[in-house]
Design a protein around this nucleic acid. Sequence first.
RNA 1: GUCCCAGUAGCUCAGUUGGAUAGAGCAACGGACUUCUAAUCCGUAGGCCGGGGGUUCGAAUCCCUCCUGGGACGCCA
Length: 555
Amino acid sequence: MLLEHLKSEIYQDLQAAAIQAREEGKLAFEELPLFTLEKPREKVHGDLAANIALVLARPAKTAPRKIAQIILEYFPTGSNRVARHEIAGPGFINLFLDPSWVYAVLPEVEEMDDRYGCSSIENSEKVQVEFVSANPTGLLHMGNARGAALGDTLANVLAAAGHEVTREFYVNDAGSQIETFGRSLEARYLQLLGQDVPFPEDGYPGEDLIDSMRGLISKAGDKYLQVAPRLRREILVKYALQEKLEQMKRDLADFRVHYDIWFSEQTLHDSGAIEAVLKELQQKGYLYEKDGAIWFRSTLFGDDKDEVLVRSSGVPTYFAADIAYHKNKFQREFNRVINIWGADHHGHIPRMKGAVDALGYDSDRLQVIIMQLVRLFRGGEPVRMSKRSGEYVTLRELIDEVGTDAARYFFVNRSADSHLDFDLDLAREQTSDNPVYYVQYAHARICSILRQAGDLTPAQEIDCSVLQDPAEVSLLEGIAELPGEIKYAAASLEPHRLTHYVYNLANLFHGFYTTCHVLNAEPGLREARLALINACRITLRNTLKIIGVSAPERM
RNA sequence: GUCCCAGUAGCUCAGUUGGAUAGAGCAACGGACUUCUAAUCCGUAGGCCGGGGGUUCGAAUCCCUCCUGGGACGCCA
């Protein structure tokens, strides 16, 4: 927070300096371009480096180093904790902060505690994150697991960055797959009761359907044998669907994913919302009839072909329901709607955005994160999976085998658009190879020291400037970076930044731990180090919480 | 064939709204435990950033092209 404040003030000072220089005729440019003010990779380049002179070079038609010099003439020295500055390399402005700034982070972390890292931003938005939304006709697989970890973490990140977040699961409890589901269940039901009936060719072959029907038979016996097939399928679907949903909720809860809303597709059919949205598109002239079906002119919005909304049979497609669903989202006044989809849905984006535009909403308010597929490895070999054959590793099995902590960390640790090779053996290993333990261990180590330390002195009452060792200063700086990291991760929709951040912070702590002893340090220094590790504990814990990984006090 | 994603150290991956000497983990090699948890730390080595062209003060990052891997192209969802 402090660091963020400093940065934004310095940024503004640089802007002001450039504009002042222009007013006095020293620089000529039309509009000040955006520039970066970042912590440079190399320590010798200062605490913050600005490339303002470089980006101004072209518009101002002046050599970057010359521009930097001019800007610095108008840059207030001594304020905002800038101790000194220099022009370096091709024209960077390197700023060296008064070293005292880092110490202010300790009381702040202590005071904010659970809230440290969180911001309350001025332009807070109402954001919806829809993720997983798996078909309830089967079990949750690895792709769903990745979506769950990513979606939930992203929602946490957005919330921490000050947005109002709703997590939503769209339940596909209508349409043709439910039809197929019903026929599959019926076949299993009859087969279990000794009838020699064929299993539908396009049916869902998973064992879980058999289990489900076995459960039904043990409760209700064979009484549905006498019921008319159509009604029978309805009953079986209703039973199995509820069971499946409960199971999904249970498994996701064990994965520490909790939704605000489970939105039923069926309600869109029942309420007439789909009909209404079709009518609206019709009136706006975006629909036409061909081959007995009703089509949406998605090509008007940049799609490569038009899309069927109502089949020639009169039954609306999934896409029609999805349009109604998205209209519903915008009617609920979300400023932004974020969907996390698997890579196999990427072709769906242009038409979905097209439909949103057609309905009169700005399609930029719909953001789709495409995540690439997951490949599982066990014993160095890829695990063969096929949803069609019903052979795949489920979320439940993943939780049982590697645990929620490791699984979530691994999923979040990779950017969404990278193909993920998930090494089950590595995730299960409780060794230093496994980054999640590395981070948790740092937290446990701190807790161990704090247990032995007795009461803490409030950071406010301590002279923290005794923390002069490079390991101490680096750790302080690392702690100070969390609010900025969260903002960045939220703005770029990249939760994987958080695992990288927390790993780095753990690394800084372990380095500190080796160099600096806490409990037997001299009076004064001891209290300051205790305050430091306590702040580090809070920072580690809060970040792990966002990722959805536990912060154990003992290991 | 068209579109999307990826190609960076032996392996898994960061880094891409263009910035300074391209990073981390693992694996390899060499060190560090009388003291708060060695599930740790320090060091060494490891690279035509897939190839080729271009844009400019500057390209892993942007553009073009080619190669390789994965995915999508249905009145499925």
